[in-house]
């Protein structure tokens, strides 16, 4: 192995070690990704985690580039590249899953407090997505309909509610697994039914019953 690479490795080690705590950010991002994929509604954007992940990916890209420049053994480089690819996949998939949800529930999100769960760029995306959709639907269909049926939100002017806005279905069921918190969850309306994660481990529960615990990270969706 080239001796020049070892110095570089030691320097990088310190930097990376600092960012690795008991659980790595990769692990945290994986959990955020799983929760985002499994939950029916859009969750709060993990701003700090995404920021840290981007920085780590950047750092790793630089490291790999350095290695390529200084003649490190190709096997080592390809392994670092694989680690990097896995991290990037997670981050991209996380962001994409959110974009899919935003596209699907644009109007609902922009009208409720869910708007605050979006990052700045996501809010920009949502706004543009909503505008394009409105423009398209107005031009192609709505403008040709009789007066009173031209709203994008209501079926007709006489309906009281905005009955054409797709909303996430919170009444659905999700799979969840115990984590270090080992919560006990009330699952029924009456409160006499409990799901004890320490004992039961894995289960299917109504999303509304564990919604808050998902938000606070005390229950993991799988």
């Amino acid at each position: 192995m080239a001796s020049g690479s070892e110095e570089g490795t030691e320097l990088e080690t310190e930097d990376i070690d600092k960012s690795i705590r008991l659980t790595t950010d990769v692990e945290l991002l994986k959990q955020a990704w799983r929760n985002e994929k499994a939950s029916p509604e859009i969750l709060k954007f993990q701003a700090d985690l995404v920021q840290r992940s981007k920085e780590q990916i950047q750092l790793m890209e630089d490291t790999v580039e350095d290695y390529e420049g200084n003649g490190t053994d190709p096997l080592t480089i390809s392994l670092y590249q694989m680690d990097l690819d896995r991290y990037q996949f997670l981050l991209r998939s996380y962001l994409r899953t959110r974009l899919q949800k935003i596209e699907k529930y644009t109007i609902h999100i922009s009208k409720t407090e869910m708007w605050n769960r979006l990052s700045r760029p996501e809010q920009k995306f949502a706004k543009r997505c909503k505008d394009s959709m409105e423009k398209h639907l107005t031009q192609s269909v709505l403008s040709k309909l009789p007066e009173g049926y031209r709203s994008i939100l209501q079926q007709s002017a006489s309906s009281d509610a905005e009955d054409m806005v797709p909303e996430p279905q919170l009444d659905t069921f999700v799979f969840c697994k115990s984590n270090q918190y080992r919560e006990v969850v009330q699952v029924g309306e009456s409160g006499d039914e409990q799901f004890d994660f320490a004992v039961d481990g894995l289960g299917v529960i109504r999303y509304t019953a564990i919604r808050e615990l998902v938000e606070t990270g005390k229950v993991d969706l799988v």
Partner: peptide, 12 residues
Amino acid sequence: ISMEPLNFTCGD
């Protein structure tokens, strides 16, 4: 083979 430690983003 012999190889130096790998300091990955997912751990060492």
